[in-house]
Design a protein around this nucleic acid. Structure first.
Lengths: 201, 201
DNA sequence: TTGTCAAGACGAAACGTCTCGTTTCGGGAT
DNA sequence: ATCCCGAAACGAGACGTTTCGTCTTGACAA
């Protein structure tokens, strides 16, 4: 069996771990993922290369962890629920669009998506650790709207979320259109038209 | 000005050009884009490395061209127009989903998308040479449907296309769900609900 | 005769492995 | 409670390998 030899986690240096993840995140923003080197991460973190190779299998894994750390604080968030689904969704989508424009997030998240496309294992990890929790929070809000009669109770919530987010992220990734509030609002309005409750009482 | 020195195109070897593009396409499918090397392309094509560097600026450009060649035959295509928009769109989306499953196309197109995400210049080239012609053909079909009263005449056609295609390509890229006919049909139905003509009159 | 061609030598850069001493940690003996 | 000591991770960087993009050579074709 290819039982991999794990180093002893309890003796791991927290200082080094944090320094590596911080250096990775900074360097991705500065030079881009493609030009990022393990040696540069080690140098900036003040760490031996072996310390990186001991705990991470690849450059992609390091960068993934460095991004994961950022979103770990936001884990338990819930979407706003004022009772007005359309207004709440517009708020959230506008915020998402604004987040995409943040220079500090742009380079690392672009790199993450690029890796996800070609690496099935990383894609699975991404769905489990980052995508799934977010999706569940969004679904909670949609279920609340279903109970309030603002959304078709039979709607496929995964499909609803794809309608809301897939065009947004695709346009951002491909840089094909500016992501302004008008677009975010149009997305919400069209999606709600597609999934509003049946008219007849 | 950085006027780039172009080699003499008239003396270019057509045999080498085709061999390079063919080798590039084959190798991407075999070993993946990340492990693809210029030297391997040159070796398989029976070509000197300099012959590649003379005509293409980067590995990405070679692979892009090798994919572009494939789609050049399909340039003037039009979507089916039987008069039934819903049926036609389902046909097209099912075909697109099936195309995504084709093993020969999968690796190169995944690589292309990964590069597009991180390379703005390549993204612009992609939109101009591959995305725009396709989008225009699809819009033609949608305008026909607008004239036939099957689609809201005021609908933003770019938004309609994003609703139809963005969820499909996103699920394929992220490998989050299987792309079956049921999903394709659901996409079409929900999109048409969102953009059907006003009920009145 | 001029410029592209195939072939491959070349230095630079980054890889992943490895070997150094050094530092840190936990358990046993004092 | 304090000290000692071995084990393991640590910082640093040398090492051989791979791939890069450039450069050189001689053949050949327009």
């Amino acid at each position: 069996m290819p039982q991999e030899k794990r180093p002893n986690t309890t003796r791991r240096s927290e200082r080094s771990r944090v320094a590596i993840l911080t250096a990775a995140r900074e360097l991705v923003s500065e030079v881009g993922y493609a030009k990022l080197t393990i040696e540069a991460i080690a140098a900036r973190a003040g760490v031996g290369k072996q310390t990186i190779y001991r705990w991470w299998p690849s450059k992609g894994a390091v960068v993934f962890d460095s991004i994961l750390v950022l979103s770990e604080g936001d884990d338990g968030i819930a979407l706003p629920d004022t009772g007005d689904l359309e207004a709440d969704l517009k708020t959230v989508l506008r915020a998402t669009a604004a987040e995409f424009a943040d220079a500090g997030f742009e380079a690392p998240i672009r790199a993450l998506h690029a890796e996800i496309i070609t690496d099935p294992d990383l894609a699975a990890l991404y769905r489990e650790k980052m995508e799934a929790p977010m999706r569940e929070a969004k679904k909670q809000r949609l279920r609340s709207a279903q109970r309030a009669g603002q959304l078709d109770p039979d709607a496929d919530l995964d499909l609803v979320l794809d309608f809301l987010y897939a065009p947004l992220t695709q346009r951002w990734l491909e840089r094909s259109h500016p992501l302004d509030d008008t677009f975010a609002d149009a997305l919400v309005e069209a999606t709600l038209r597609a999934f509003r409750p049946a008219q007849g009482s």
